[in-house]
């Protein structure tokens, strides 16, 4: 097992990456931040991440597509959805397609941290 949990963070909002990157790194994760979903997809195809955190509503590529791609690549990877467009339909679609969790924007950094910790837990990483 790797030393550090590897996380890919994708959101077309620059500030989200800028803030959440340090937030997660501070508690000991390895974070790669992406703004462009296409580049993120390429990276996902190159590397198997432990956790993928993705926005839903983005230009060109939808967060659900990212989720599907990740599921195709490795079933082990946990996908966490962060969205400003949370609805029952979206929540159910995400869960149905195998998302690990979903949180609605706006959220506090600690909300994400606890979700990531839960995911890490389920992956067998103990802190």
């Amino acid at each position: 097992m790797k030393e550090k949990l590897e996380i890919l963070l994708l959101d077309d909002e620059t500030i989200v990456g800028n803030r959440l990157g340090p937030v997660l790194e501070k508690v000991g994760y390895d974070v790669e931040v992406f703004e462009d979903p296409k580049k993120a997809l390429n990276r996902i195809n190159e590397k198997e991440f432990d956790i993928v955190i993705t926005d839903i509503m983005m230009e060109d590529v939808n967060g659900i597509q990212i989720l599907e791609e990740v599921q195709k690549k490795s079933e082990k990877t946990k996908v966490i959805i962060i969205t400003g467009y949370a609805t029952v339909a979206l929540a159910r679609e995400a869960m149905e397609k195998g998302a690990f969790d979903m949180i609605a924007k706006p959220f506090r950094p600690n909300d994400l941290r606890s979700v990531v910790a839960k995911a890490a837990d389920s992956l067998g990483y103990k802190k």
Partner: peptide
């Protein structure tokens, strides 16, 4: 048993 009815942070909230 369907996955879509699983609880998550958002729905618990």
């Amino acid at each position: 048993e369907h996955k879509k009815f699983q609880p998550m942070t958002y729905s618990l909230r």
